[in-house]
């Protein structure tokens, strides 16, 4: 197995172009597990840990450009105000050691439907920045996930960053696991309200072949939410929102949980996160008024 270790982003892109079969590795929290369990024997590894840009974050217009290699721990500690849902999801990732190494780029590269970062990226309409020697292109997260572990990234491309819109309202993330820490999601859900556009974004994790949105739930909520006052949603509205989120899922039975439980849990998480988001919404309105 070849081990490529570029020192600059340009070298990394050149290396990926020359060896499209090279597997990028950063924190190694997914890739090394696969190698150690002998599930994968890549012809080459492309080590990105020496590329400094990947660990940087900065404003990009009114969005936040988050380097693909920024560890979850940094997102939790430094970016909770600029990326609330992603920070909540990052806090739910694995253990402190893994959060020090793992990054959103790794989640996007592996594209496991259980990745904790995906639902917030979908809910907040984040954009994935892909780069190759051919140039840079920006793909909305909502168009990024194509199939089971299949994404819009081409073989010669590397994931450079994600662009996170400035929060325009409350964001929430919640995840089910059968222990109280260090657990792969059985199901997860993210919700983002946009007060300016009067729209709602959703993201569903671990309940389908890819991370999913619940478009009908989004439209329903955009129409039913009290954008003027943030009144607590009626039980009927909350119930229907939960049902629409559950209906959007395409879960299976596996060792982590049954499809029926996943749907049920998603409906509960959708109702609860909606209630919390509405309360946050009222609080923000009170603070502004």
């Amino acid at each position: 197995m070849e081990f490529l270790s570029p020192a600059t982003w340009e070298e990394a892109l050149a290396a990926k172009s020359a060896r499209p079969d090279a597997v990028p590795i950063m924190g190694g929290t997914d890739v090394m597990v696969e190698l150690n369990f002998d599930r994968r024997r890549p012809a080459a590894l492309l080590d990105l840990t020496r590329v400094p840009e990947l660990r940087e974050w900065a404003p990009d217009g009114d969005r936040l450009r988050l380097g693909a290699g920024v560890p979850y721990a940094v997102i939790v500690d430094r970016l909770a105000d600029r990326a609330p849902a992603l920070a909540l999801a990052s806090r739910a990732v694995a253990s402190p050691q893994i959060r020090n190494r793992g990054s959103v780029g790794g989640n996007l590269g592996g594209a496991s439907p259980a990745g904790d970062a995906h639902p917030p990226l979908l809910a907040t309409d984040a954009v994935v920045e892909l780069a190759s020697v051919r140039g840079v292109r920006r793909v909305p997260a909502r168009e990024f996930y194509l199939g089971p572990r299949r994404t819009a990234r081409s073989d010669d491309e590397l994931i450079a960053a994600v662009l996170l819109p400035a929060p325009a309202g409350p964001q929430q993330f919640a995840k089910i696991g059968t222990r109280n820490a260090m657990v792969i999601a059985v199901a997860s859900f993210a919700l983002a309200l946009d007060a300016g556009r009067r729209s709602a974004g959703t993201g569903i994790g671990s309940a389908g072949p890819t991370p999913l949105r619940a478009p009908e739930a989004e439209e329903f909520l955009a129409a039913e939410f009290d954008w003027a006052g943030g009144r607590p949603p009626s039980p009927a509205v909350a119930q229907e929102f939960g049902a629409l989120v559950a209906a959007a899922a395409r879960p299976i039975d596996d060792v982590r949980g049954s499809a029926a439980y996943r749907r049920h849990a998603l409906s509960v998480l959708a109702r609860r996160t909606l209630g919390w988001a509405a309360a946050d919404y009222r609080r923000e309105m009170a603070a502004c008024g």
């Binding site: 739910a92 919640a174 995840k175 089910i176 222990r179 657990v183 998480l269 609860r272």
Partner: peptide, 16 residues
């Protein structure tokens, strides 16, 4: 949330 079922995964603020 660490004191509640679900822990850091943020599933309940006391509901249920």
């Amino acid at each position: 949330v660490r004191a509640l079922p679900g822990g850091v995964a943020n599933t309940s603020r006391g509901e249920g």
